[in-house]
């Protein structure tokens, strides 16, 4: 049985977008990435796409598969049918075929300072944290930077300055981290018309996230912190768990 692949390609030299079709023989448990590799090896060497781990960990192979953002390595042919349409991710400039430029998304990610932020660095030992404290942000820390949320967000498509679900979710991750100290400064970065307030809770980011990071949840929590629950942040920054629970101290 042959599968029909319709791929939206882009030729940067001729500045031309066009659909190209390929017939790929079906194999049980085949993923979209397997099929793309088959095309690349046997049918068309010029087809460009990005991939690395083939295990849903690196976040390189994100694309639109039959109208929905997904990772090519994690999507089985059986799940999507015999006719498969592939397009590059939305809201990113396309470099060639299915390869997009993540620069804008990563620049926004950098703007929220995605690292532990303290006035006085500690170099002689590691920062300690209880398992309970880790549970508060472990879900968001699973982000693999695949850009599916950024592509699916309807607001990112209309506001280029909007930080986007990826950066905002990561901001939430650092705000919830007890090792990070200056929550107010972080909140000041995102408490803007192009920050958390541009999100209208369409929920598409959470719907497409392959790791269940749930950016929509994180952004709504940030809005709550910014509006009515600023006091909660103070409690997080001083590691609020009871002393007896922090056995390592």
């Amino acid at each position: 049985m042959n599968l029909k692949f319709r791929i939206l390609r882009y030729d940067p030299e001729e500045k031309r977008r066009y659909n190209q079709e390929y017939a790929v023989p079906f194999r049980k448990n085949m993923t979209i990435l397997d099929a793309l590799l088959y095309i690349k090896e046997n049918l068309d060497h010029s087809l460009s796409f990005r991939y690395a781990c083939q295990a849903g960990l690196c976040g390189s192979c994100g694309m639109i598969i039959n109208g929905k953002e997904n990772l090519a390595c994690q999507t089985k042919i059986e799940e999507v049918g015999k006719i498969i349409e592939l397009k590059p991710l939305h809201n990113f400039p396309v470099i060639k075929d299915l390869v997009v430029d993540f620069e804008a998304m990563f620049a926004k990610h950098s703007s929220i300072r995605p690292y532990i932020w303290r006035e006085q660095e500690k170099f002689d030992s590691e920062y300690l944290q209880t398992p309970e404290e880790l549970e508060r942000f472990i879900m968001v820390a699973s982000c693999i930077n695949c850009g599916l949320c950024y592509s699916s967000c309807p607001v990112t498509g209309t506001d280029k300055l909007y930080l986007g679900p990826h950066a905002l979710a990561q901001c939430y991750r650092y705000i919830m981290d007890t090792r990070d100290k200056d929550k107010k400064k972080r909140l000041d970065i995102i408490d803007s018309p192009h920050g958390i307030w541009r999100c209208h809770f369409a929920g598409e980011c959470s719907e497409v996230c392959p790791k269940g990071v749930d950016p929509a949840y994180s952004i709504q929590q940030l809005k709550g912190f910014a509006l009515l629950r600023r006091n909660e942040l103070k409690r997080i920054s001083v590691a609020p768990l009871k002393k007896e629970k922090r056995k390592f101290e």
Binding site: Y10, P12, E13, K15, R17, N66, G67, K68, P88, L89, H90, N91, F92, P93, V94, I95, V100, D101, C153, P154, G157, T158, K160, H200, F201, A202, G203, E204, S206, E207, A216
Partner: peptide, 28 residues
């Protein structure tokens, strides 16, 4: 030369295969 692949306002009205909250977003 890259191609700007932004959906623009079109992305606001896409409903096929989307989640329930997106439908509410559009209706709102």
């Amino acid at each position: 030369m890259v191609y700007e692949n932004s959906r623009g306002i079109r992305g606001w009205w896409e409903i096929k295969g989307k989640n329930f909250e997106k439908l509410l977003f559009i209706l709102h």
